[in-house]
Amino acid sequence: MSLSELAADAVPADVEPTGRQIQGRSPFRLALSRLLHDKMAVISVIVLFLIVLFAVLAPLFASITHHPYGAQYPDTARDSWGLPKGPSGDFWLGADPLGRDVLVRAAYGARISLGVGIAATILSTILGVIIGVLAGFVGGLVDTVLARFMDVVLSFPYLLVAIVIATTFKPHSTWLSVLITIGVIAFFSFAAMARIVRGQVISLKEKEFIEAARSLGASRMRIMFVDIVPNLVAPVTVLGSLLVPTAIVFEATLSFLGVGIQPPMPSWGSMLNDADYRSSLWLLFVPGGLLLLTTLAFNLLGDGIRDAFDPRSERLITRK
């Protein structure tokens, strides 16, 4: 029998379909299929998709209504008492006290919330993974110093220090304020990530496959980033998905206090800051509702992701 015949024998060209075939599925695919069966998680994904769409279409709302986000219409958007007008054909979700379009501002605010929330999470995840892996894998003095550093960051009165940082570098350009806000949030959230990663790495590095890699002569860098990091995907994804809503709340809080995103760029937090909602409900409920909807959806999705990776973990939402 020639080699090619052997190969043909081993893999028959046309297999009779005898019932269901068994496929190997990666842990990630398993998790994904579990996630897709999770009703709350799917609803959250749909809600988040709609919010992303809302954010992406912000310029469209601005051009349909002919109201750029920073433009003020003190005459048409306010009544004779100088109070902002409610939802109408011209201002779909009403106007704010300066006569700006709430719908358009909310849409641009969605860009800030999602953008800052996700960017800060990515940044703190990268920082957290690098520092956590270094501390856990290298051990010794490096670990002691890094672990103490995490402890110190975690015991900072973070809101206070965040306000000091944001005020100190209070930038005059909007984009700089976005970058600083992202940096501040990442600095105060990486430690939680690093701590979890460190714990995982300490237990992973005693496993046989790491020993095998070492005996094959793999360098420490290679073991850290090629062998260990892929095994961190599950815990990092779970924690990362729960960091997003925290970061969004953090941004909104800083902007609410006036030290986060600087005008003219709107943010849900700053919209709530200048909301005189006593007479104008939409000023409270439009940005407030969007903010709550977004963080709720991210928390539910994160909960679903955790459950998908580890079905035994305790859930936020009790089933049946």
Partner: peptide, 19 residues
Amino acid sequence: STVFVLIGLSIPPFLMALL
């Protein structure tokens, strides 16, 4: 209580206060 827990974990402190 699960519903309240979920809202409590998600809502920004200042929004809760405003509401």
